[in-house]
């Protein structure tokens, strides 16, 4: 998905249509809970509506994702989901749950890569999602995640490296030779 230039004066309805699902996915990945994610996104849009449309290009996306992220992290804090509480510590650790949302697990098929993504450390997942689902720039991601573009680069680099390795590993397994059945 390509990040779109947000024209000044656009209405909330349009922004809603454009960002609802991406934000929902983003929040769901952070909270691991779709109902909570829905609440967070709703709140985000209410806030957006109150503050009125932003005028600077590209800022809408950054603004929405930032607010959404804060909301999602708040949910985590309230519900004592440790995942994001101590981000620096957790960064080094692999996510314990290979797939955070069970519901999706049953429905989804193609998400092989997404599954490997889901096993990455939380912040790496986040960067990957912002970059590849929402096509945000390093700078935008840095703003949303309150870090530097440099750090985003490192996170993304590390994440992609892991993905490449895991992907290769899985694909490298060879279905062993099965002797032909003779009757």
């Amino acid at each position: 998905m390509r990040s779109e230039k947000i024209e000044p004066g656009q209405n909330v309805e349009e922004v809603l249509q454009r960002f609802e699902v991406p934000l929902l996915q983003y929040a769901a990945r952070i909270t691991g809970d779709r109902e909570r994610a829905r609440d967070v996104v709703q709140e985000t849009f209410i806030k957006f509506h109150r503050n009125g449309a932003l005028s600077r290009e590209g800022e809408t996306a950054t603004w929405l994702f930032t607010v959404c992220r804060n909301g999602a992290l708040n949910v985590c804090r309230k519900e004592r989901r440790m995942m994001y509480l101590d981000e620096e510590v957790i960064e080094a650790r692999e996510s314990e749950q290979p797939m955070p949302f069970d519901q999706l697990e049953q429905q989804e098929a193609a998400g092989f890569l997404l599954r490997i993504v889901a096993a990455l450390p939380a912040r790496q997942q986040e960067v990957i999602q912002l970059k590849f689902q929402n096509d945000l720039s390093y700078q935008q991601i840095a703003e949303i995640m309150k870090t530097t573009a440099n750090n985003v680069g490192v996170l993304l680099h590390t994440a992609l490296k892991t993905l490449r390795q895991r992907y290769g590993q899985l694909a490298g397994d060879f279905i062993p030779f099965k002797p032909r059945t003779t009757e």
């Binding site: 991406p22 996915q25 193609a110 890569l113 990957i128 590849f132 992609l160």
Partner: peptide, 16 residues
């Protein structure tokens, strides 16, 4: 890989 990720993420959205 980036293309594949975009693809999968796009599918994820599409399903919603």
């Amino acid at each position: 890989l980036a293309g594949a990720l975009k693809n999968e993420f796009a599918t994820e959205l599409e399903k919603e």
